[in-house]
């Protein structure tokens, strides 16, 4: 395995092929809580094409992580997928048994988790943890496993990987640990990598390095990436296409330039307005109100109570998924 360092590359949309690698259709997830069944995902649909990067943006509790975890079958015990399909390679992943799914998880689809500080088991050395993934995913043992582990660590730009193998997680910095997590996730040569806010817990400079690394890995492994974040500036930097989530629904999705230039949904516009821009001295715009609690759902559009342009239709009935320009849809009555 050649280790490719990140290098500035042309915008990845050039590599895009048309057949979707992963199709998510009407994915619905419910949580059992003390207040009854709560719908965390409501008919979420999107495609991921080979080699592209899809951003999923939204504020806390909008369902971004639940989307990622339901694809990876890592939902908490009280959550249940109640509808929809996740198609990969012509198969609906939701119909696979747990044993069959282990042939997908880590091998076809892998994931980097949010918090590098809790993503590594504190009682095992780095080499043990990466080596375990190598053994399980590739059946390598002994010296071959160690060599492959070193390659993986070198592939994520960890200096002196032969020495680092002997470190415990607490002996490494957050950025280094996130690289180890990535190396573990890549042990099975996956085609899809889901990144659930991988840089949220990192300093700004380390964050930029990690994004660079991720782009390099995408190139080296030919990865399709689902990048989950609440940060629109990271989306602009990383993604080909973007899906904006609000209260368990994808409110708007489309090409990243299209969304930035012509945001159709008022929520997207509000999010974009709240991103700080260099050189502007005005105060940041905020979105009034609170995200809705999914426990007591009102009729109508979930964003309507906070929406500056909502009218009576918005409060009365749920909006349809409006197709705008090609590949650009918006879940809004007033989308233009």
């Amino acid at each position: 395995m050649n280790a490719h360092g990140p290098s500035p590359s042309p915008h990845p949309s050039a590599r895009r092929s048309e057949a979707p690698l992963l199709e998510v259709r009407d994915l619905t997830v419910e949580f059992k809580t003390r207040h009854g069944e709560v719908r965390a995902l409501d008919r979420v649909s999107f495609d991921l094409r080979a080699g592209e990067t899809l951003g999923i943006v939204g504020e806390s509790g909008s369902g971004k992580s639940v989307t990622a975890r339901s694809i990876m079958r890592l939902l908490p015990r009280n959550a249940r997928v109640t509808g929809g399909e996740i198609r990969y390679d012509g198969r609906d992943l939701l119909t696979l048994s747990d044993r069959e799914f282990r042939g997908i998880r880590g091998k076809a689809i892998s994931m980097v988790l949010q918090d590098p500080l809790t993503s590594l088991n504190p009682v095992f050395r780095i080499g043990w943890q990466v080596g375990e993934a190598v053994t399980i995913q590739q059946g390598l043992r002994g010296a071959a496993r160690d060599a492959r582990s070193v390659d993986l660590l070198r592939g994520v730009n960890i200096p002196a990987p032969e020495i680092r193998l002997h470190n415990y997680p607490h002996e490494m910095s957050g950025g280094m640990r996130q690289r180890v997590v990535s190396a573990t996730a890549l042990a099975g040569n996956p085609r899809i990598l889901i990144c659930d806010e991988p840089t949220t817990a990192l300093d700004a400079t380390i964050q930029a390095q990690f994004l660079n690394l991720l782009r390099g890995l995408q190139e080296a492994y030919g990865l399709a990436i689902i990048f989950i974040t609440h940060d629109f500036s990271v989306v602009a930097e990383m993604c080909d296409r973007v899906a904006v989530m609000y209260s368990g629904q994808i409110r708007e999705r489309g090409d990243v330039f299209e969304i930035f230039d012509h945001p159709a949904h008022p929520y997207t516009r509000a999010l974009l307005a709240s991103v700080p821009k260099l050189g502007e001295t005005e105060r940041l715009t905020t979105i009034p109100g609170q995200p809705p609690s999914s426990a007591n759902k009102l009729p109508g559009c979930a964003f309507a109570p906070r929406c500056p342009i909502a009218d009576s239709v918005c409060h009365a009935s749920e909006p349809p998924d409006m197709a705008l320009r090609d590949d650009h849809t918006s879940l809004c009555w007033r989308a233009q």
């Binding site: 880590g106 918090d115 590594l120 088991n121 943890q129 375990e132 573990t184």
Partner: peptide
């Protein structure tokens, strides 16, 4: 069982 490292172990392919 709620820690991310258990999720990562699953991603690494570990059986239950």
């Amino acid at each position: 069982r709620r820690y991310d490292y258990i999720s990562l172990a699953r991603i690494a392919g570990c059986s239950t």
